[in-house]
Design a protein around this nucleic acid. Structure first.
Lengths: 151, 151
DNA sequence: TGTATTTGACTATATTCGATAGGTATGAAG
DNA sequence: CTTCATACCTATCGAATATAGTCAAATACA
């Protein structure tokens, strides 16, 4: 198969056993699946799923973020936010405090802040290891390229 | 928040509304979700899921690939391969031909080859558009960086 | 002001993907 | 021939994501 990307920086031989490995979309999917599986395992240490940990990281230091706003930031539908926040609430990691008769702010509890410390440690180690696996000449291009695909 | 990646090539301002956007793992997840949702929509035209289209692309021109081998190449468990191949078989896109009393080769049928033509058109357009969305200075680094994370 | 519409949180439910556990029959190896 | 590994499959679970729709509160506006 021809290298349709015409990439001059990737002289690595393409194994005939996987002709899909030169496709950007395919490599994106495989890399993301591999990394998220790894992060999921690491976050098992604090019994949190990736989306739950994302919520904790996002609301830290914010007193008035509603589940709708969190969902808008993380691209999670409000219907799917409900059970996520409910679980965090049930574990005492967040509290839902009324902003008015309708809106609820999702805020960290003291226990939530303690767990968030663990989450920060786990994710920072993970992110650092992830970047280290990328060859130095490609490293600085990684986040900008990805951001162009959704930001 | 500080740019912990220390990336000299990304002067883009980080929106305070999403402090996670500087995290490589997070951007990887968001980009992959966005792209796969898009590809999924495009493949709806031929009523195929991404994993099913991957199988068709992989087995083209191969006469003796078993579902186990396909699964090994695409990182799909054999338990999950079974219903995927069964659906492709039921639609007449692939046939399962015995290699011996135990192994079955999954091969394209004529109908499968026709649909594969559509799949190639869809995926090639998709991959091209994906790469075009990445700024030129980052483009050549994209696939090599991703491949370092799982290959 | 009173009515209509929109919004925020939620329930119920369906689909897709990925995983484990297990079952059955064939092929290989001693 | 017996034992073990292999290939395919079913059943089932967990997580993420999707839609449809409920209900009450907030808002818009005639």
């Amino acid at each position: 198969m021809v290298d349709v990307t015409g990439n001059p920086l990737d002289p690595a031989p393409v194994e005939d056993s996987d002709p899909l490995a030169i496709l950007p979309g395919y490599t994106l999917r495989r890399a993301a699946n591999a990394m998220m599986a790894e992060l999921g395992t690491l976050l098992g240490e604090v019994d949190l799923r990736v989306s739950e940990a994302s919520i904790l990281l996002l609301i830290d230091g914010r007193a008035t973020m509603t589940s709708t706003q969190i969902g808008a930031a993380l691209d999670i539908r409000s219907a799917n936010m409900a059970p996520l926040v409910a679980r965090l609430d049930a574990r005492g990691l967040v509290a839902r405090v009324p902003l008015d008769g309708k809106s609820l702010a999702v805020v960290l509890t003291d226990a939530g802040r303690r767990v968030l410390g663990e989450v920060r440690r786990i994710t920072q180690d993970f992110e650092r290891d992830l970047m280290r696996r990328i060859p130095t000449e490609h490293r600085d291009h990684f986040v900008p390229a990805l951001n162009a695909l959704w930001r």
